[in-house]
Every structure is written in C-alpha cells, then in structure tokens.
Amino acid sequence: MDLDLGGRVALVTGSTQGIGHAIAVRLAEAGAAVVVNGRDGSRVEAAAKQVRDAVPDATVSGVVADLTAAQDVDDLLLQVPSLDILVNNLGIFGAKSALEIEDDEWRRYFEVNVLAGVRLIRAYLPGMMERGFGRVVSISSDSSVVTPVEMVHYGVTKTAQLAVTRGFAKVAKGTGVTVNSVLAGPTHTGGVEEFVGQLVGSDLPWEEAQRRFMREHRPQSLLERLIEPGEIANTVTYLCSDLASATTGGAVRSDGGYVDSILP
C-alpha cells in the first residue's frame, strides 16, 4: 500500500514525546512536511531533530505554542497559515477519584483535551474544504467508550472528542476532507509508565508492573500488553493518506481489542 504523503503539510500537536512524536516520525517517513509542536522550546527543538535523525531527508519544523492560550494559537496560525493534515494529539490524563475532581480541573481537562482541538479545526478546516483535500485526525482513547473509574474526567473529554469529530465531519461533507478520531488503547509512553506506577506501585520492575496493570486495570485488552506508539502512528498515517478517502466521521479503533464491541 502506497501511503505517499509527499507535498502534504502536517501539524501534530503535543508531539515532543509519546504517541505524538511517533506520529510525526511516521508522517515524515511517508513524505509529509511535518510541524512539531509543544510548549517548551528546547523540547520542540530536540523533538524536531529526532524526527530529522530518523528521516534524514524529511522537511521538519517546530512551533512552540500553548494551544490553550489564544495568543499562542494566533502566533501558530501566523507561522503555519495552511495545512493539509491536522493531528490533534495534545492531551492530558491522570488518576484521581471522581469525587475529588473540582470544577477548575474539569475545566482544564476540557480546555486541553477538547477545546484546543476545536480551535485548530475551526482555523484550518475552511482552507482544506476550499482546496478540496484535508485530513483531520484527533487522538481519542478507549476511555471515550469505556469510562475509567480512576479518571472519569479524562474519559468524559475523550467522549466529547468523538462528538466533535462527527460534527465537523458533517461540516466537511462532500468536500474531499475527512475528519476522524483514533481510539488508542493503553499505550506504552513515559506518561503511562508514571500512571502505571501510580496504580500498581513504582517499586516494581517495569515488565512486572505492566503485566499487573493490564491484568488488574485493563483486563479487557485482547493483546494483554501495552500498545507501542508506532502502532498508533501506523493507523493515523493510513487515515491521512489518499487511501482512506472513504473513511470519515469515524472512531477508528487501534485499541488492542480493549473495547468489547463488534462495532467500531
């Protein structure tokens, strides 16, 4: 399958590490000019260099922006006025009792996990529609369908993300632009290693901690292991390609069989 993204410009938000960084690398490998994003300049620079090291002939740039801040978003739009591919990867998560989550934290989760992506879709979608091509992919989660008791606020924002996807896909109806979400399952990132430590103890060797976490907290997984970021990136890259032209408005699963459903 030819996933040629040559000539396409792609922005991956929150791409200095983890899933976002893996997506940036994979899109670059497919030929896209990739814009790496994060809030810290040194980390953005380092991440862009890592993509260049992995894909020596890639066109890679970095934009420092806190996407919850209106001025930063305006600055990003000045630096990157037009896109072919928008990957809304930015997100936060963390374990906390639902009864202890206060209003300000609920607002913060919605601001980062939902509204930051909405702002960028609103900014870039019209140009995509006018040109007759575009790909918007938001990185959602199995938690959008199976609300985790240890982080209800995260699950709720990821559910909202699916509705955002479906709604904007309808806005782009018939234009050649597709808008999708990817339901990522439990994935092996630095942040998840910390999260696993919170739940099963940070003193355990990693392999034992991972097995215990999957057994006790994610027993629905059919893989019975954490997904690697590159596996999520493969799904995203396909959705960004011409080959996925008939897939839009969807919640595409890359969840290791975690969601117990015969439907997507």
Rank of each mutant, 00 (worst) to 15 (best):
Q210E: 15
Y124H: 05
D72C: 14
L76A: 11
E216Y: 07
F93N: 12
R253D: 02
V196L: 01
E150Y: 05
T189M: 02
I262C: 02
F213H: 05
R211A: 15
P229C: 10
R39E: 13
A47T: 11
A246P: 00
L11H: 03
L5H: 01
L76H: 05
E224C: 04
V34A: 08
V12M: 00
M1Y: 03
R108A: 14
P229W: 08
V192D: 00
A95Y: 02
Q17I: 03
N234Q: 11
R166W: 06
A28S: 12
F133R: 14
V137C: 07
L115N: 08
G250C: 12
L99K: 12
F110V: 09
F133L: 04
Y109T: 04
A209C: 07
V25N: 11
V51G: 07
A24I: 12
V145I: 13
D40F: 04
E231T: 10
A10Q: 10
T159S: 15
S15C: 02
V152G: 01
T159Q: 10
A123R: 04
D142M: 12
P81Q: 05
L67A: 02
R166K: 14
L90N: 09
V171I: 14
A98P: 01
K170V: 06
M129V: 09
P81G: 05
V145G: 00
N37D: 11
R26W: 02
Y238N: 02
L199P: 07
F133P: 02
K158L: 12
A28N: 11
R215I: 00
S140E: 13
L115M: 13
G132I: 09
V73E: 06
K170Q: 15
M1T: 06
F133K: 08
K49N: 12
N88A: 06
G197C: 04
S261M: 10
G256Q: 10
V192H: 06
Q79Y: 07
E45W: 04
V152K: 01
L222H: 05
A172I: 10
T159H: 09
V156Q: 08
Q161F: 00
A69D: 14
D75W: 11
L3C: 11
R131E: 04
H153Q: 15
T16W: 05
N88H: 10
I227R: 01
V60G: 07
I232A: 07
V63G: 02
A184K: 05
D57H: 06
G176T: 14
L263Q: 08
E102F: 06
I262L: 15
S138T: 10
E150K: 02
E231V: 07
S97Q: 14
I85F: 04
D75S: 12
V177L: 12
L223V: 13
F168E: 09
T237V: 07
V200T: 00
G197M: 08
R215V: 04
A10D: 07
A65C: 11
A22W: 00
M129Q: 14
E100F: 04
V152L: 15
T237S: 10
L125C: 03
Q210G: 03
L11K: 01
S61N: 08
A172Q: 07
A169V: 03
E231F: 06
L3E: 07
D203E: 15
S144H: 08
L125W: 10
V196W: 03
R218H: 03
N88Y: 02
G41W: 15
V36D: 13
Q71K: 15
A54V: 12
T247I: 15
R39F: 07
H153F: 00
G127C: 04
G256D: 10
R215D: 12
T13K: 00
